[in-house]
Amino acid sequence: MSDYLPAELIVEILIRVPAKIVPRCKCVCKRWNSLISNPHFATTYLAHSKQRPYHLFRRLDQETGEELFTLHPSDNPDNPFPRNYHLKNLNRSDPALHINLLRLAQEVKDKGGFFGCSSDYIKLHCPYKTRYYQYFHQIVGSVNGLICMVDSYSIDDNYYLWNPSINRSMQLPRPKYHDQSRSNSFFGFGYHAPTDDYKLVRLVYLNNCNSPVVDIYTLNTGGWCSAKAQPSAQYIIDSFGSVVVNGAIHWLAHTPEDAHHNLIVSFDLGNEGNEVVFHEVPVPKILEAGYTVNL
């Protein structure tokens, strides 16, 4: 029957099946296999699936100590969290937040618990366990359905990439170990469209050094490379609080204490070579002085 269904129509049908089913479709015949294996398929599939975004939730089961991940359609009115409720970086010192959280907790309870409010969520099985009981992975970021996580409660961090839709994951090699004691590490994960590549960026501020060592993992090469940044006098505030916009990773930072003001530091994912350039973006005047700013 499909003798007369041209390749582009087969593709149009297959980009509409759930990601989990795609590998099964590859098994149908060599022609389908090669259509799906073509990088063009992945691009088309992503573009189509983005029309219906999901929110990824993660919670810790207090009893089992297990880390639970679920996907909720962001447009579902039964979502435990209403639309536009951005939780990525909660500012715990904001009193309004606590009131909101209390209200939210009551709402969730009224609906029968976090997972009682709707059957329309997808439970994911995290392929990795943190090394310590009752610890979360740190989520560096997620883009195009790919989640970058770090288990970072010891000196030898473990880095993972996980695509829950197709249940594939990989542990990344470790970056170069820095002899000197680290004072702090900051992370960002993003997609660089021009090279169709995913990058994990780690900034390490070594003690007594005001320019960070930058380690960049690129998925296409499968390896890390180090780069040097120019000395800078900003302090990034949150290790895992990066936001990726327009192909650049952004962190909130502030200048030294005596001249404290907030600003945004950005790193272009297209940055090539071993010299790293950070750009500074001012924050709105009203937020410049505060101590409780979040991206």
Binding site: C27, V28, W32
Partner: peptide
């Protein structure tokens, strides 16, 4: 199933 999809589209599995 894969078998159903093959039958549905009249495709012969060629692996």
């Amino acid at each position: 199933s894969v078998e159903y999809v093959r039958k549905f589209f009249g495709i012969k599995g060629d692996f």
